[in-house]
Amino acid sequence: MTPISEAFEEFFASAEPRLRRALVAAYGLERGREAAAEALAYSWEHWSSVRRMQNPLGYLYRVGQSKTRPRLVRRLTSRPETVEPIVEPGFTVALAGLSERQRVATVLIHGFGWTHVEVAELIGVSATTVQNHLERGMSALREALEVREDV
């Protein structure tokens, strides 16, 4: 087995949780984790070019999207295909009702404290657009969960 370089190990330790959470937010637990694993495998195979990228996480996010894309044929918007009763059932139903970008923005910013710019770089849109997705996502979640105090 080829030894994994120290630089890659360091990259992996930092990128793995971020990529996994982002793609799980986008595609659900099973598909999101699978997409993240494929993207990370790609990063190892193409480490010499990935290590020189300015925005490797954004690139790998799109790699993960492309790896899971064949299952999205004929879907104009992507939603988790199944509601996974990992946490409160009402919450997962509400989350599944959001668009992919709304889920990514709400999960990463409110769940993990990412900045708008970090999410913007990840999904390739402007910070303003991220804010729009965030507001819409949070409004829909609050409405679905009837979290009136946060409106």
């Binding site: 087995m1 994994i4 190990e9 992996f12 793995e16 949780p17 996994r20 959470r21 799980v24 937010a25 637990l29 099973e30 999101g32 984790r33 993240a36 694993a37 990370l40 495998a41 190892w44 996974e84 990992i86 946490v87 409160e88 919450f91 997962t92 989350l95 709400t106 999960v107 990463l108 409110h110 769940g111 993990f112 949070m138 979640l141 609050r142 969960l145 979290v147 946060d150």
Partner: peptide, 22 residues
């Protein structure tokens, strides 16, 4: 509470190990 639910949801998928991508 909502933030916690969002965090728990995305962290429900087990971490990916380096051996797995190998």
């Amino acid at each position: 509470d909502l933030n916690t639910l969002l965090r728990e949801y995305a962290d429900a998928a087990p971490p990916i190990r380096q051996s797995e991508i190998e």
